[in-house]
């Protein structure tokens, strides 16, 4: 049925809706860590930012999906089966006790799918969190230093300065980078396919192909080209809509700011 195909579009939108805020949270934590005066923490934050950007993101996707799964299973294995003495890695196998399997072998199909999707969301969030951390770190540094000095002169603590002065002002500096990141995130969603999720790419391949016996009630030749053309148009539409939306947001945020964008708005209204 073609329902699965239509449903997979919602999967993409759901992924976007969950990943964007979570990645932003990861990014915020990363940027805070990188700014920290405590050396190991700042190295951790900077390392997180640097590594994810030096290596292709696809490599990370492939890595984290297996690594996270094994990490979860290993943890459960340690907790649930303490009497188990065999090593977890035996040659080319990764063996945990039955009770520690994720999802459980007896679980229904939808649990498997949800678990896969959950892993994908975490993976996306970790990778895009690093990009967001980079952008937010830049945004925090772009806030004029005089603002922070003034806050200190008023006797604010470091914590107060951070939350009351720095954070409210950094968004307008970070927004160009974040909107770029949003675009990149949209364009990364088809990679869900590589993580083993039955997403739009999967269904476009399945439905477009003429070989598939499941869909003999609509016999057709090889239409995969047209299905992918459809996806191309879908993504172009998403990009265009986001561009317009972000443009509006930028105008809103620039109002009254001491940036060239804000200056431009001021001139527009006075002229």
């Amino acid at each position: 049925m073609h329902w699965a195909f239509y449903l997979s579009f919602f999967k993409v939108l759901l992924l976007l809706a969950i990943t964007a805020p979570v990645a932003l949270g990861f990014g915020f934590l990363g940027a805070m860590a990188a700014r920290s005066h405590f050396l190991p923490l700042s190295l951790l934050g900077k390392g997180y930012i640097a590594i994810v950007r030096g290596v292709p993101d696809i490599a990370f996707f492939m890595f984290f999906v297996i690594a996270l799964d094994q990490a979860f299973e290993w943890t459960r294995h340690k907790v649930l089966c303490p009497e188990w003495t065999d090593p977890v890695r035996q040659g080319n196998d990764f063996i945990v006790c039955q009770a520690a399997k994720l999802p459980l072998g007896s679980a229904p199909e939808w649990v498997h799918e949800t678990y896969g999707f959950f892993l994908a969301v975490i993976t996306f969030s970790i990778v895009f969190g690093a990009f967001a951390a980079n952008v937010l770190f830049g945004g925090m540094r772009a806030v004029p230093h005089a603002q922070l000095e003034t806050a200190e002169a008023y006797g604010m603590t470091r914590r107060q300065t951070f939350w009351r002065i720095l954070v409210p002002q950094m968004w307008v500096y970070a927004l160009p980078g974040l909107s770029n990141l949003w675009m990149v995130l949209i364009k990364a969603t088809p990679l869900l396919f590589l993580l083993g999720i039955e997403d739009i790419v999967y269904w476009a391949r399945e439905l477009g192909s003429y070989k598939n016996p499941k869909f003999t009630q609509y016999p057709h030749g090889d239409w995969r080209m047209w299905y992918f053309l459809g996806l191309l148009v879908f993504y172009l539409g998403m990009t265009r809509v986001s561009e317009i939306g972000l443009e509006r947001l930028m105008r809103r945020l620039s109002r009254g700011q001491a940036t060239s964008g804000g200056e431009l708005l001021r001139k527009e209204t006075t002229a």
Partner: peptide, 22 residues
Amino acid sequence: IFLFRGSPLFIQFFFAYFLFLS
């Protein structure tokens, strides 16, 4: 520029491959 920047490279690969195939 809009066409190639606005769509995912991944989908471009798929589309191009099936286009070339036909």
